[in-house]
């Protein structure tokens, strides 16, 4: 189980806000720390994979339950 250092609540936000808030929140972490993001935008699933790939911040884990999407991104 991945342990997060910070949580970002992106529920109710639509594209591109979850990604933009994530970028900002990652900026406040140091290398190796993990950000947990909770989102409700179904488009976020593809977008977080794409964000992780392009920014080289690893997407450690992701899950869905009850219409909420959870992502764990580690700051590179």
């Amino acid at each position: 189980m991945v342990q997060e250092d910070k949580v970002l609540d992106a529920r109710g936000l639509n594209c591109p806000l979850p990604i933009l808030r994530t970028k900002k929140a990652l900026g406040e972490l140091s290398s190796g720390q993990v950000l947990k993001i909770v989102a409700t935008d179904p488009g976020a699933v593809k977008d977080f994979e794409a964000f992780s790939k392009q920014t080289k911040n690893p997407l450690l884990d992701q899950a869905e339950s009850g219409g909420e999407f959870v992502f764990f991104i580690q700051k590179a």
Binding site: P16, I19, L20, F51, T55
Partner: peptide, 11 residues
């Protein structure tokens, strides 16, 4: 504005 802000977030 959507594409510009997202692109900026992607570096």
């Amino acid at each position: 504005f959507i594409l510009a802000s997202t692109a900026a977030a992607l570096g």
